[in-house]
Design a protein around this nucleic acid. Sequence first.
DNA 1: CCTATCTTGTGAATCAATTCACAAGCCCCG
DNA 2: CGGGGCTTGTGAATTGATTCACAAGATAGG
Lengths: 207, 207
Amino acid sequence: MKRIADSTVRRLSLYLRFLEEFENAGLTTVSSDELAARGGTTSAQVRKDLSFFGSFGKRGLGYQVAELTQRMRRILGLERDWRVVIVGVGKIGAALAQYEGFRQRGFRIVGLYDSDPAKIGREMYNLTVRSIASLAADNRERPVDIAVIAVPATAAQRAVDQVVGAGIMGIMSFAPIQLHVPADVTLNTVNMAMELERLSFALSNKE
Amino acid sequence: MKRIADSTVRRLSLYLRFLEEFENAGLTTVSSDELAARGGTTSAQVRKDLSFFGSFGKRGLGYQVAELTQRMRRILGLERDWRVVIVGVGKIGAALAQYEGFRQRGFRIVGLYDSDPAKIGREMYNLTVRSIASLAADNRERPVDIAVIAVPATAAQRAVDQVVGAGIMGIMSFAPIQLHVPADVTLNTVNMAMELERLSFALSNKE
DNA sequence: CCTATCTTGTGAATCAATTCACAAGCCCCG
DNA sequence: CGGGGCTTGTGAATTGATTCACAAGATAGG
């Protein structure tokens, strides 16, 4: 398959949310124009985005909401559950651990890890916080799909190395630094510091 | 000034972090090549990014770390403090309220707001949680630069409307939905659901 | 069954971002 | 003070993403 642009995947994710809203509202059919209006883009963009994956509509009519929803779920890999562990149970990690958005989309939190002995063994949200040293063995016993990195910047690369060493192939990081992983590991970073600076830049440059 | 691409601003933010690291390491001079290596890009990209704002280096020599750091801070609007309020003091809002990254970069949290009567009046991190209804008056008395939206998806658009109505011009949202603001208000969204789905897509489509 | 009206799917054209490649400038050394 | 070795800054070329524009289907109504 041809490489799909990041911007396209982001929009697919938006479309899926809109489709779910349309489905809840009882609509059975939707046009690329309606999807575009909802997402602040153009109908051509919507059709082009979808066209990378196939041809899902009927000319003159639009798309079946239920069908397109399911197709999008399949495309985005949301038809299965993902086993997720959280590394670092400070404030951010704890907030993530109980974030409903994870579970809703099939991201099941199956483990909490920390390196702080004071936290290891503690019960949180029906899980026992375990030492990060046991991650490799745990992963062998019952494989994990995604590790969420929620440790301080200074500890993040070490944590990532341990996650990679344990054999986990997907990482979502909230550490505000540039992390390095082997090419076969997928890393996705949400860098809050960067987002704040982007906002600061935009506010500073309003004419 | 010519419009600056979002991707460029994101990289500037990275460069700044690297420059600070170089400065801490005692380096006085740095080349576009070294910055590029650190950030996983190319030296031409680094020079092009900087060229939108001026010409900061010396041919044959590179850039003065201290000078470039300061220039980047100015460009990103980080030479001043920003007054920030957090709207919604649930788990995410509370985690953000005590996140050190904010203060470190000059984003000072000066207010916490919620609509839940059970939370209003409560003391958190040296601030008293106030009713979101009082935001407009508070902003008139002492202007706020940025509002961080940390309420559930269903309440987010209403919260944004109140923030906009209060006259605040910068918004950073963590709600997993598409929000609408007037053109003169700057909105920056971190959509965790979208990031997870991006990861899911990438993991599902490894060769 | 024919016509009018929609809306998709997609090459072609445009617009935007990145990379190339090299002249220009600076430092150092002999 | 002149030549060699670097590295910047930037037009030109390339690569990538978005928008345009229209033929191809599909439906509905008479």
